[in-house]
Each structure stands twice: as C-alpha cells, then as structure tokens.
Design a protein around this nucleic acid. Sequence first.
DNA 1: ATGAAAGCGCTAACAT
DNA 2: ATGTTAGCGCTTTCAT
Lengths: 346, 346
Amino acid sequence: MADGRTGTLLPQNVTIKDVAEHLGVSHSTVSRALNDRRHISEEMKARVRQAAAELGYVVNAGARTLRSAESNLIGLIVPDVGSELFTAAAKALAARCFRAGYQLVLCVHEDDPEIELRHVEALRQARALGVVIIPTPGVLDQTAALLKATSVVQFSRYSPKIDAPSVTLDGAHGVATAVAHLASLGHRRIAYVGLPDDRSTGWDRLAGYRQGLERIGVAFDPGLVRLGATLLEYGRSAMASLLQLDPRPTAVVFGSADLTHGGVEACRRAGVRVPQDLSVVGYGDPAWFKLIGPGLTTVAVVTGEMAEAAILQLLRKIAGGPDEAAASIALEPHLILRESTAPLRA
Amino acid sequence: MADGRTGTLLPQNVTIKDVAEHLGVSHSTVSRALNDRRHISEEMKARVRQAAAELGYVVNAGARTLRSAESNLIGLIVPDVGSELFTAAAKALAARCFRAGYQLVLCVHEDDPEIELRHVEALRQARALGVVIIPTPGVLDQTAALLKATSVVQFSRYSPKIDAPSVTLDGAHGVATAVAHLASLGHRRIAYVGLPDDRSTGWDRLAGYRQGLERIGVAFDPGLVRLGATLLEYGRSAMASLLQLDPRPTAVVFGSADLTHGGVEACRRAGVRVPQDLSVVGYGDPAWFKLIGPGLTTVAVVTGEMAEAAILQLLRKIAGGPDEAAASIALEPHLILRESTAPLRA
DNA sequence: ATGAAAGCGCTAACAT
DNA sequence: ATGTTAGCGCTTTCAT
C-alpha cells in the first residue's frame, strides 16, 4: 500500500537503482557514470545522465555521507546574527563554502553555553567537516571535548579551553591607540564603556584602556569605567550615568559597536554635543558610523580581512587533516579619524 | 592498516555496534535504549547511556537520514547577509529551528539565479525538510521545479514561478503613505529612488509611488524617478543626480534601506540640509536611522513580525505534509515620523 | 566496460 | 525484554 514508488505525484524517491532499472543496467554503472569515474564509455555516461535527468534523480547526500563518513557541512557558531562581525564572517564563509561545495550551517548561541553545546553536538552528529566559532564566555568542557574531533577555528573571541587556533583582533592595541589620540588632544578624564572582562574581547580591550592611560601618565579611575553585556541598552545607561558625573569626563572610548551605538543615543538624548561637549571614539566601523553627527572617530575593525583569514585557516585544516599545524593570529585595528573628537576646551 | 577502530587518538567512529559489543548486547537494544523506545528496562537504558558516553558515541545523523528519508535541515536562501531583513529572518528562524531540533543551512545567492539553483540542488540532495527563500529576480524553471518537492515559504520577495505561499510586505501601501505625508506638508515635486521593477519588491513600491501621486493629483514624472540595484552606491549616485535637477525636487522617498543610506550620504556630501533643503522619507528602519541627522522619517518594515509569520507557516507546512494549505500574506508597514521631513518652504 | 556483492550506521519488523 | 534480520541509497572492491 504505502509504496513510495507508485505513481504518487511527488517523484520523491528516485534512486540510482530506479535509473539503472530504467536503463537495464546495473546500479553500479549508474553510480560510475554519475560520478564521472573511469572505465565507463562516454555513451553510457550520456545515457545515464539523460535518464537521471528525466526521472528527476537527485543524489542522496545522506547515503553518501554514510559511506564516506564525512559530510559537506561546515558550522558557523555565533552569539548573534546582527553584528558587523557576524556579517563579515558569514559573507566570507558563505562565498568560500559555496565555491568549495560545502554547505554552511548557521548556529546562534546567544552567549548561552548550553545552547552552544547543543549546536556542537548537532554538528558532530552531522559529521560536520569544520567549524568556525565565536565562543561563549563560558565554554563547557564537553563542548571543548567534542570540538576536538573536528577542524576548528576560533573567530574574534578566544577561549583557552578550545584547542584550536584563533583569528582575533588586537583590541588592546586599538583601544590604547584611541586613548593616545584623545590624550594628544589634551584630554585626561577619559571614560571607557566596554564589554565584561569574562570574555577575551572584554579584558583585552580593557587592558588596552589601562595601557593607554599608563602611557600618558593618568591614573586608572574605576569610576570612569563601565562594563556590561546587554550592549545597546547598556551603552545607553552607562553613558547616561557617566554624564551624571561631576566633573564629567571630557572624552569617552567605547569597546564595542553596539555599546557605541547606545552611548551615542544617550548623548543625543541628554543634549550633549559631540565633540564640543564630549569627544567620542567608537569601536568597530559599521557603514553608518560616518553618518552619525559629523562622522564618528572609531577603532576600525578589519572584519573582512579577519573573516578571510579565518576561512582560509579552516579550509587549510580541512584539507590537511586534523594535524595540520595552524597558528593563532591577531590582526591590528586602526583608528579612523573623523569629527567626533576635538581638542579639550579650557 | 587503515583501521579506524584501532587506538588512533580520535575516537571518531564509535557506532552503536561498538557500544553493543562493549556491553555484550545486540545493537538494536542499544538503539532502543538511546532512542527511549518502549520494551526496554530502565536498567538497560542506564547502562547503555553510560557506555555510550564513556566510549564517546555520537549518533550518525547521515545514517538516520538515510533510513527516514528526511533530514533535520532547513534552508534559508537569501540574497545577502547584511540586510535588516536577513537579520530578522535569520534571528527568528535560528531560534525556532533550534527549539524544534532542526539545523539551519545558510545559502547566499547574491541575486544570481545560477547560484540560487545550485543551493536549491544541494538542499534537495541533503533532503532538506523545508526552505525559506528570498528569491532572485530571475528564478530558473529548474529551481522552481526542485522546490516543489519541499515545504517552501517565500519571504519578503515573491516569485510567481515558485509554487509556494509568501510572506511579504505591502510596500505599495508604505510608499503611498510616505507620498501622502509629504503632500500634506505641501510638497509636489517628490522624487523616488527605488529598486528595479524586475522584482516584486521593486514594482510594488514603485506602484505605491504612482498611486500616492495620483491621489494627490500630481502627474507622474519619470525624470524624478531613479531605479537601481547596486543599492548603497546607486543610492548615492541617484540622489546626486536628482540634486542636479533644476528645479530640484523638494522631497524624496526611498525604496530600500540601503538606497536610503546611500542617498543620505549623497545629501551630506552635497551640503544639502535635511529637512530644510530637502525632505527625506527612508524605507526600512535599521536601529541607526533614528541617529541620522535629526532622526529619519521612514516607512518602517515590521521585520520581526514578518519573520515570525514566515517561520510559523513553514513549520506548519513541515508538520502538515506537502498538502497543508497555506495562504500568502502581506503585512502593513507604517510610517514613523521623525524629523527629516518638513513643510515646504515658499 | 560492465555486473555482482558487500557494507557504511542506523531503525524497525519480526522472532524469541 | 532482548536478539535477529533486513534494508535505507550509495560507493567500491572484485569478478567477468
């Protein structure tokens, strides 16, 4: 009764055997023809292709995976899907994967280690070939263990638990440069709004802030620092609270694009003029930063380059087997000077 | 020699047979235990789970797919990965898929129908359960045919070739409303910068522009219309050329977020003040639109709602089989009034 | 150049 | 409650 092969409308289950039967040949011949193997006549190849097309044959990737023990899946594991960083990574990965015949599995963990684990499990189950991961701050041991069986590259963030090379940004350098720039304009009360220091990107950039201050001989003042993870909203509230201070900071450096976004919003709401009342250095460089007020001075992340570097590392690892050596690299950000910073006014 | 099962460092290929052997039971018992089937003692379940964990067993999704003829893969096919729309769709889909135990395959076609086809082929090969697609303007027949074998929902754009319901936005309504708003401020020379009319989103919004003009009794003037697809750059150049006109338009409506972005940039470069010299209505509402100048008046797309609607449709189709009826729906955008439009000056 | 047969890892129908 | 067996669709020996 429930025979999938009768004339039910959908030609769902056409297999290599059906094609073979249709042609009166063996199914291995069909396989050879379709896969362009040797020891098969051109004529047969043509006939098989023809028949396959007519019958609507579609190779079953699952069966192939079963035989070869490897899929064509590459996992992209990220905290969220709206960030500049994600966009760059996804864009580069998508293009490269497509060209190489891989499929890209998108996994969003929202900074939840449990969700992250479940994604990694699913990728292992699917015998994913490789993984690009922006890890959560609290990667679980089990996650790290599972990841060992695959080619992995850490992207943007780095977790020491995960035994895989990383492609990151030298955030410390970026933020230190921002502080130096502000100092050169005469600023001394420089605030910092950044990510929590439980993640590599957080402590890295915070360290840069401290280094920057040290170099200009200004003591670190915890009262001028705000760290938080809810990004947009936190940027708003942190900036608002800094504006309450007396004396106010004369400049502020942000540690993420979303925090910058929130901070700028807060300034606007409070009627604070940038850069007349407050100099601002953002972090990251979404295309719209240049449209904010007179254009936002910012620590520009070379997202495209980072993404390309990560993908190339991954593809190399995949091609070279699990032992392919691969070094972690950290790219240098650079300061883009626009109009949101100005000399300190007496 | 090349025995995967010897003590090579990676415990790659642990199968249920290995677990069974380890326990001295049959592999079907292991399967039952692992899948929580009936007719199996709690004790055995526990022993099997324990052993599986110890040996590092990971189920082979490929084999499972082979048996069941269905994978747990859902395809998301989109033109690009940076847009507000994509972000909304990916976010909603990712969350829902995760909860339902599906994996999300990201496919980027860059508006190239050939690439689109290859993605659809790959998804068919992988026996994807369902597909959410923002189709290219020129969907190929073969693509449409392949898509028939799967549960599909069209998102944002609609292609008549594809036999699947769509969740779109009533762009005509949105743009017409924008025109009406400008007319109420006294504007008559209202320009339009939009997408090419080869895609549903293009002609739809253009139609809205014409309707809007008609209602206020202004003749359609092709000289005030610019249509292009390269988005950001086109927005810039189209706006620049409109600003050359004599007499200039006193207001402009955009037909996409990226075009808006480019257009605003062009205004800024040309030293045109918004809204004093030119009233501007954008399209879409990325979070940063409110930070542009005094805040951008815009046709707000309810991306979140759209995405949710699309996902729900898809999940329903997947659950209900291929014959599950599903109606196309078009959501209403609404105008968000900020400060980029002003009464016409004499 | 082609066919026959085995087996990848899993589930499920059918014994016991 | 557990074991035996077959078969999903494919690739790949090994025969012929």
